[in-house]
């Protein structure tokens, strides 16, 4: 069971990649094939099972794209 669950508000994403850089598990990637309405490459999770729910990605996101839920 993954400890954390990420939900993305893709339309707000500007594809800066800060979340990808600061994910300690390195499970985020920029989806080069998918664009949002503004024309930015959106971010997706490659291995959702490995998420530890640290919320570093959401903390570093300037545009509040990511919502983090954790098991308690």
């Amino acid at each position: 069971m993954p400890k954390g669950k990420l939900t993305f508000d893709h339309e707000r994403c500007k594809g800066c990649g800060l979340c990808v850089e600061y994910c300690p598990q390195k499970i985020l990637y920029q989806d080069k094939k998918t664009l949002n309405d503004s024309g930015y490459n959106i971010v997706s999770v490659s291995e959702p099972d490995k998420c530890i729910g640290c919320a570093f990605c959401a903390m570093m996101c300037p545009d509040s794209v990511i919502k983090v839920e954790v098991d308690k």
Binding site: K5, D9, A58, S64, K67, V68, D71
Partner: peptide, 9 residues
């Protein structure tokens, strides 16, 4: 699941 981080109000 509880919300740990979301867009602030």
């Amino acid at each position: 699941m509880t919300v740990k981080y979301e867009k602030t109000k």
